[in-house]
């Protein structure tokens, strides 16, 4: 028989290292004589898309297309230390360093532009610096050239420190993290009671990310996280025998494949964080945290069986179904 169930998982998660552990990041922005922009930061993009959003942020501040920016990252020889890509911290801490550095160079460029144009209230947009009068504007490129000719400093490094206070050592009370991500996920599953196999039909994932700098990146993070959470819930297992690893390859360690991927509906919730860049927080780890609880709750809804040991693979689910059958027979 096939039984369906619904389950919810909720979480909140601290962004950054928290607990008074040092949490710093840096970015350097240089405006070259020809108007090109070079951004340097030690932050690693290992697929989560931070390179893209850094360019978006700098482009937003300087009013230039994000794809015109040159980014140099993760090179200890040339980039300032930004700390690691962990703790769902990158957008929040390095993003802030990017915005700060961009605003610093912009301030210098703006004062030069005001001097050239003889106007205040300038806006940086579409590769130009504009006043309210159409004839009083200068291209970003020409302004950069003038800045170099005048010898003003248009290289800036910004430093962002989100190290928090520790919690009270006696009571454990306090605000351990700089900010928090919040999320709820709902899982719909179908359990084959004959084989013990659980099929995830759908995941609905709502994540408060503060502000989605790049919504499709955020969706990508949520979808990837959901699949990791699904693998954790249903199939992934490290098996050892006598101290030897038995699941040492991806042929033995069962991650979900594209064929196992359910429909995933991502809902991006934007409650701006006062200290985040444009209000943004992190989503990397939060994306996978509620998935396994949501799935296990859905299994419980379907079978009236509480799974307390992972993975909820066919063998384990079938065992629990058989045990429950025996108990009911006995009572």
């Amino acid at each position: 028989m096939k039984k369906r169930g619904l389950g919810v998982g909720c979480m909140f998660y601290g962004i950054g290292f928290g607990f008074s552990r040092q949490d710093i990041s840096a970015a350097t922005i240089e405006i070259c004589e020809d108007g090109s922009v070079i951004v340097r930061s030690g932050e690693v993009d290992y697929g989560q898309g931070s390179d893209t959003i850094f360019c978006q942020m700098v482009g937003e501040e300087l009013g230039i297309p994000y794809d015109s920016i040159q980014l140099i990252t993760a090179d200890t020889f040339t980039t300032p230390n930004a700390g690691p890509t962990t703790a769902s911290r990158v957008t929040y801490v390095t993003g802030n360093a990017m915005v700060k550095a961009a605003r610093a160079v912009k301030e210098t460029m703006q004062s030069v532009a005001e001097d050239i144009l003889g106007e205040g209230d300038l806006v940086f947009m579409d590769g130009e610096i504009r006043s309210e009068y159409p004839d009083k504007r200068i291209s970003f490129r020409d302004l950069a050239k003038t800045c170099h000719a005048r010898g003003v400093q248009i290289v800036e490094t910004a430093w962002q420190d989100i190290t928090t206070k520790d919690v009270d050592p006696e009571t454990g009370q306090g605000d351990a993290y700089a900010t928090y991500g919040w999320a709820s996920q709902l899982a719909e599953v179908e359990v084959d009671t004959e084989t013990g196999r659980v099929e995830v039909l759908r995941i609905i994932a709502a994540h408060d990310v503060g502000k989605a700098i790049n919504p499709s990146n955020v969706e990508g993070q949520i979808e990837g996280g959901v699949l990791q959470g699904m693998g954790y819930a249903l199939t992934e297992e490290i098996v050892q025998e006598g101290g030897y690893l038995k699941t040492g390859s991806l042929g033995d360690y069962m991650m979900p494949t594209s064929m196992d991927t359910p429909r995933i509906d991502s809902h991006i919730v934007e409650v701006a964080d006062p200290d985040g860049p444009y209000g943004a927080k992190g989503v990397g780890e939060p994306a996978l945290i509620p998935t396994a609880p949501a799935i296990l709750n859905a299994i419980c809804d379907a079978l009236d069986i509480r799974v307390t040991e992972l993975p909820a693979n066919p063998e384990n689910i079938k065992r629990l179904i058989l045990e429950k059958g025996k108990e009911e027979e006995a009572s």
Partner: peptide, 12 residues
């Protein structure tokens, strides 16, 4: 075929 996932899987 019964397996723990829908592709790339050894059958139970």
């Amino acid at each position: 075929k019964l397996a723990s996932r829908n592709a790339m899987a050894r059958a139970y």
